[in-house]
Design a protein around this nucleic acid. Structure first.
Lengths: 245, 245
DNA sequence: TCCCTTGCCGTCATTCTGACAGGAAGTGGA
DNA sequence: TCCACTTCCTGTCAGAATGACGGCAAGGGA
């Protein structure tokens, strides 16, 4: 430990986004096709380097959200997943990436002809089943993002972030079923959800119909922590203790 | 978006550690007293810059663990908390810090006369009650680390990381009570813990005594995911949905 | 020996959960 | 108009889980 003035080594910092949404009752993630050389042509999570050295991390995430996905960060859920800094993860050199999880409501159009061209919603199942390989360590980042969403559905009101301003209980159930990959009993789900104080509140007596009896509309309540929690049924493949992302 | 070759801005990367342990049934965190100028004399989390540009993040965490706390990373739980990159967090300039949570068993001596001098175990209550102010945003990082530990006790076998190789059920209960800050009924805790398959397994019929009837010893079982979960009793101060660490 | 401490094992009422039955309120076709 | 069909909502009921608590076992110290 020398006492001489020593300057710490600088590192390149990037931001990557796991943007999840529901499309036709299936969990989708937004992917872009890489146009430049490391992993050119391969699908990847939206993201990029910090634009300047004084850019806030969250601001960078919001900027990428706008530039690459044409989404307004103010209207959706955004939280940090963690930092990914393994040595070989970027062939260009030492790049540490901070990953964010975003959850978008309903179905914002796949992509516009805007600068977000090349972005597309892909069913997460296609990635999990390895029908589609991702660039860098983005497969791992995506897996961590999905796992985070799965866990947070249990004890937080994150599920409402997948829905629009108002939603029916059946729509909310679709969120849980799609993210968890399980089927739930509608009647028990109804009872449970309505029994959690402050989770959802009736939104007028409006109703919107799709074939059968019109459903009551709700909006998210003030409570962000769910108690009692909506425990997800035990999975056949127990997730190991993540000790090192 | 110019097409000219553009080099992303480099950033200084640091690693900070939240090291938790139990000392006399109280949750403690390891803090160091800063010897150099930003926040000189103030308590801070152990940590430091990457030693060289090609150092792995986890390796840096393990190195700091050894240098500043004299702890062997191979024998304790270590997981990443997240990246902290707010703009004003370090007066020296733009520093992004990756925080790690470590959980140390039992009572490794406070600190040695080694190079870990100046490190001391501090009850987390002293920090939470603002009897002690920390440098930088370390108060927030510590709060996030404690919150992470609290939630992981529910569905993972993290509690065993606070104990030694073998432990009694009462010791395990002390972990839950100290971290959650609640009292639990010993008989119900016993029933619940023994009912979780694979969580703990009896370790011989050895016993170690402290006054009353000798207790049976256990060691951690193969299962890292607890089902059914050990739900923590509802808190009076509900934790808000963390949307931006 | 008596008392005190701590660990282990029950019981019991209440609540929660999973699995159903069935009626209410709409749509579309004969 | 009547009927089939869909979806939404409200109950019921048995079994599991939970919180509260009583009692005995097994040690140490006065």
């Amino acid at each position: 430990m020398p006492d001489t003035p020593w300057t710490p080594p600088p590192v390149l910092l990037a931001v990557d986004l796991v943007i999840l949404t529901l499309r036709s009752a299936q969990l989708h993630v937004l992917l872009v096709e890489r146009g430049i050389e490391p992993y050119r042509g391969r699908h990847a999570l939206p993201g990029g380097f910090l634009s300047h050295a004084d850019e806030d991390l969250t601001a960078a995430a919001r900027r990428e959200l706008r530039e690459e996905a044409n989404l307004d960060a103010a209207r959706l859920h955004l939280e940090q997943l963690g930092a990914y800094g393994a040595l070989g993860r970027d062939p260009r050199g030492r790049v540490v990436s901070v990953a964010y999880l975003a959850v978008a409501p309903g179905l914002p159009e796949p992509e516009a002809g805007t600068d977000a061209a090349g972005a597309a919603w892909v069913p997460v199942h296609d990635v999990e089943a390895r029908h589609l390989e991702l660039a860098f360590d983005h497969r791992q980042i995506l897996a961590d993002g999905i796992e985070r969403a799965r866990t947070k559905l249990e004890k937080s009101s994150l599920a409402a972030a997948f829905c629009g301003e108002t939603f029916t209980i059946a729509e909310l159930q679709q969120v849980y079923e799609a993210v968890w990959g399980t089927r739930l009993d509608p009647r028990n789900f109804y009872r449970k959800v309505r029994g959690i104080p402050g989770f959802i509140v009736p939104a007028g007596s409006q109703r919107r119909t799709t074939g059968g009896r019109p459903a009551q509309l709700f909006r998210r309540g003030p409570q962000t922590v769910l108690f009692p929690p909506l425990n997800r049924p035990p999975s056949q493949t127990p997730t190991p203790l993540r000790t090192d992302p």
